[in-house]
């Protein structure tokens, strides 16, 4: 199952040039660019792990690409996303976030059915990448 989430989720995977352009856009806007990776891409999972520190003092996308390539080398079998954090007053939140790399085969999610008191049933969704490990 091909996972889609964040910005550009309706587009085919971004090429390196696309990513570079988007990252440069973030930098030009003055946003801090972050690289995050996770094996649990559940849409409600906000706690992705960060690759290095937020990059807020760089001028050129080449620096992010350098880090991104390093991250892909180490975490090639994880989902990797790039986000831009706007620290300006009134925003103070992530303005853009998009997937840049995904595992080769994506097992998708599985449905977990929990029976409760009476005949109540609760459903939850669990990422299979996280389960595989």
């Amino acid at each position: 199952m091909r996972l889609t989430q964040g910005c550009f989720s309706y587009l085919p995977d971004l090429t390196e040039a696309d990513i570079r352009t988007q990252v440069q856009y973030c930098i030009d806007k003055g946003w801090a660019v972050n690289i995050e990776f996770s094996d649990d891409p559940h849409p409600r999972n906000t706690f992705w792990e960060m690759w290095g520190l937020p990059m807020f003092d760089i001028k050129d996308a080449a620096a992010v690409m350098l880090e991104l390539n390093a991250c892909c080398k180490v975490h090639g079998d994880s989902y990797i996303r790039v986000s831009g954090f706007d620290s300006s007053h009134g925003w103070e939140s992530v303005r853009i976030s998009f997937l840049v790399d995904r595992p080769k085969n994506e097992p998708g999610f599985r449905l977990i059915r929990t029976e409760g008191a009476g005949r109540m049933v609760r459903y939850s969704v669990q990422s299979m990448t996280a389960v595989a490990e």
Partner: peptide
């Protein structure tokens, strides 16, 4: 060193 290089990228 890498931080500094990153900062200088494009310049």
């Amino acid at each position: 060193t890498r931080e500094v290089i990153k900062k200088a990228m494009g310049g």
